[in-house]
Structure formats: structure tokens, C-alpha cells
């Protein structure tokens, strides 16, 4: 990752779309899909991905506008540029879909995920886990004499690296929410 936190393959730092449409490069894109919060809408979106053989890396959904009955689905997907274009077009033509934003190409965005880690251990390992949690700004949300539950928000990469560090220190379970993302600026 570059210091600007721009992901590989992203062209958000350029005024032009530099991607070669014919290149068979697999890219990762974060899409924000604004939908009517009606029954079955999530099944519809997931069904589109499974039915047409697209990938879902992570998916989050919740109602974001109660009065208007609107939900926001954030989906991280991978594919060739042509497949990513197809995914966006296929999503956009669904009846309950109001907006589709490709946060990866529409400019800089912030991406955050929340994760809970259960780490069990005693002695040195326990102290080391706590020390690392501090460095990563993870909070202790549950504690016994033999375990911690840490809560952390951050990019998926940060969560991955914390999980790697916890593994030898007694990592028992992880729960992750998947990515929520917004574009930067007004």
C-alpha cells in the first residue's frame, strides 16, 4: 500500500481512468448500493452475485434511512474490469436499487471494518496480547482471568495483521462485520 492509502489497482489518484479495459487483471472494488429496504432485497443482490458467478469478498447491509425505508449495502468484490462493469450495470438495473457507487474509482474513500477477537492465554502471552492491542488501538470489551475480547475498527488489512499477531498468542475466535465505506469529502 502506498502512503496515501491508495490500493493497488485503484486509479483514484489520477484524473484519467488508467485501467486497460482489455487487461485480464483481477481488481478489488468496493461498491455502495442504496436500495429500498423491502423484503427479499438482500436475497436479490446475493442471488445476482451467485447466479452470475461473481465474487463477494465481504458484504454489509443495514437500514440507513428509516423514514425513507432505504438500506445501504456495501459489497467488496473482485473481477476483471469488464466483470466489475457488468456487476455495476446488473445491480443498477434492479428495480429496488436506487444508486450504485464504485467507491474504488469514484475518488478517495474511507473503509472501515469492526472485528471482535477472543484471545485466551496466561502469563507472558496474555501480557503481550494486551500490549499489542494497545499498539493497534483495540479496546478490551470483555475480560476474564484467562481471556480477553478485543474490539477493533480499521481497514481490513489492519484487522488481518492484528489477527496474524494474535494467532500465536491464543486467538480463539474472530467475528468481523465486513467493510463499511464512504467517499471522502463533502
Amino acid at each position: 500500500m502506498s502512503p496515501l492509502n491508495i490500493k493497488k489497482g485503484s486509479t483514484s489518484h489520477s484524473a484519467y481512468d488508467l485501467r486497460d479495459p482489455n487487461a485480464e487483471v483481477i481488481e478489488t472494488h468496493t461498491l455502495a448500493v442504496v436500495v429500498d429496504n423491502e423484503s427479499g432485497v438482500l436475497a436479490r443482490v446475493i442471488g445476482l452475485f451467485s447466479g452470475r458467478g461473481y465474487n463477494i469478498e465481504s458484504l454489509t447491509v443495514a437500514e440507513t434511512d428509516h423514514a425513507a425505508h432505504m438500506s445501504r449495502i456495501t459489497v467488496v468484490t473482485t473481477g476483471t474490469p469488464q466483470v466489475i462493469e457488468q456487476i455495476k450495470a446488473q445491480l443498477a438495473r434492479m428495480v429496488p436499487v436506487h444508486e450504485v457507487h464504485d467507491l474504488t474509482v469514484e475518488g478517495p474513500s474511507v473503509q472501515r471494518e469492526l472485528a471482535l477477537f477472543k484471545v485466551a492465554g496466561k502469563g507472558e502471552a496474555r501480557i503481550e496480547a494486551l500490549r499489542l492491542a494497545e499498539i493497534f488501538r483495540a479496546h478490551v470489551v470483555d475480560s476474564t482471568l484467562e481471556s480477553f475480547v478485543f474490539e477493533m475498527t480499521g481497514t481490513p488489512e489492519k484487522i488481518d495483521s492484528f489477527a496474524e499477531l494474535m494467532r500465536p498468542l491464543g486467538l480463539r475466535e474472530i467475528a468481523r462485520t465486513g467493510v463499511a465505506a464512504l467517499s471522502r469529502g463533502a
Binding site: 479495459p21 482489455n22 469488464q82 462493469e85 457488468q86 450495470a89 446488473q90 443498477a92 438495473r93
Partner: peptide, 11 residues
């Protein structure tokens, strides 16, 4: 009329 038909198979 369907944007998803465009560039689906043939550029």
C-alpha cells in the same frame, strides 16, 4: 435500453 447488455460480451 439495458445498460447491462452493453459490453457484456462484446466490447
Amino acid at each position: 435500453i439495458d445498460p447491462s447488455s452493453i459490453n457484456k460480451v462484446i466490447r
